[in-house]
Structure formats: structure tokens, C-alpha cells
Design a protein around this nucleic acid. Sequence first.
DNA 1: AAAAGCCCCTGGATGC
DNA 2: TGCATCCAGGGGCTTT
Length: 271
Amino acid sequence: MPELPEVEVTRRSFADRIAGATIESAWLGKALRWPLGIEPAALAGRRVQGVRRRGKYLLVDLDCGLLLLHLGMSGSLIFAPSLPPRALHDHFDLATSRGALRLNDPRRFGAVVYADSEDSPQAVKLLGGLGVEPLESGFDATRFHQALKRRNAAVKQVLLAGDVVVGVGNIYASEALFLAGIRPTTRASRISRPRAAKLAAAIRDVLARAVSKGGSTLRDFSSAQGEAGYFQLEAMVYDRAGEPCRVCATPVRCIRQGQRSTYYCPHCQKP
DNA sequence: AAAAGCCCCTGGATGC
DNA sequence: TGCATCCAGGGGCTTT
């Protein structure tokens, strides 16, 4: 998926345009990860107040209730004045007075879930355990270090888990750890305060840079404007197994952690 | 409580 | 060309 930068870029591409719109109709195709939780027809007539992001979730606020959208691993949204005919893997449409939103998701790991409020059980189940937003002020070195100290798992896995800090996916986890010079297998609890500070800065950096580039390291990413996707940020280690480290030329290594690939430079990144 | 595995699902790349 | 296998931006749930 789309990691935090791609979700945020997607949000920015349609949030202002859909705000204030009235929902005309909603359509749901094949089942996504979870049931919508409301009859699509019951959404008609409600007003869209805005679109926020929490971790990798998009929250579409309505005058009554909200929609939680997740792009899973392969989802993408488009927002257009009018939508083209439905194609393979289109699963959700929201037609409004200002344009229509469509979710396409080949793998269907994504989700659209209606909740009465952010405090409702459905919303709390999905959002309740999330960690701090890395691009907000709550993400400070002290608290990050404290949180890492309580975890004995490999730091890469802790980043991916999302209960300490949200939005860091498989690509940016490897990239941030490279920038911080930390081996992905290092136990989180053994990371010193200065190194935790460096990692926090690296996470902020790599995510903020990706957002500002409007994109992404994803091959097939496109924003809701339909802008083409491409590698805008050159990865330092991700997907570069065997290739020379861009800093020291040592071959980049690939290992498996929790059934996901991790890439690192054995010379630049210390345990 | 925390950690480790297991799935959900489709499609593209690779190998025989 | 055809078929099997592996891998892919995530993360909730179950089991240790």
C-alpha cells in the first residue's frame, strides 16, 4: 500500500474538492476486507464535511457519521467530476454533488467502513490502538525512546506494527533505518536515546520528503487526480538486494522479518 | 502484555 | 505455451 505519504497525497488531492458536497448515491461491489456497516442508499443526502488522515486511514467526515477508508496493499482512489464506466477491481463509488470518489483495489485488502462516530466501537477497533502521527509534534525523541525501551522485538517490526508510530510501511521502514544507521534486527529496547532521536528524525524526514514530492516510491501509485506513479524518491536500500550501497558500495542485503522483506546495508547500519 | 504466525486476495515475474 | 511457485505498499486476529 500506499504508506503514509501516498495516503496523505491522495487525501490532499480531493479533500478540498469534496468538502461541502452532498452524497447523491453510493455503490458497493465485491466485498472488501470488512462489511460497509450501513446500507449504501442510507448515505444519500448526507453532507461531506472534510477528509482527515489517521495513520494510513482516511476519515471522511459526514454531517452524520464518518467513513473510514483504507487502501490496503493495492488500493487507490480517484475523484473526478464524473467517473468512467466501472472496470475490473472497482469496488466502491461515492457520487456527490461535487464529483465522485471511486476505490479500485485488486487485492481487496482495503476497506470502507461506516461508523456513527469516531468513538463508536467500529471506529475504535480500527483506530484505537494507533501510535502517534510521525509528522505531528507529539512525535518527539523522548517519548519515542521511552516507547522503544518497552519493546524487545526487532526495531523494524516495531515500526511496522504501528502502535508506537503510524504510517511507516515496509519501504519507508527500511529507508528510515538506513538513514539512521540502525540495523533493522536491533532490539528496539536496546536503542540508545541519541539513536532513537536520530531514527525519529529519519522517519520524519523520509516521510515528509515523500509527501512533498507528491508521491512515492511505489511503482504503480497514482493520486486521486490520476497523476502517473513513478519512483520519485530514489530508494537507498529498498528493493536493492545485492546492489552497492549508495554510500559505501557494500552490497545491500535482504532478509525476511515477519514474512516481509527488509533491506539494509551491513556496513552503514550498526546493530 | 508482547511477540510471532496466519491469513485475507489478485496479479505479475520467474522458473521448469 | 502452460503451469507451479513465489512475491508484493497492510494489518487484524489467533496462538504462543
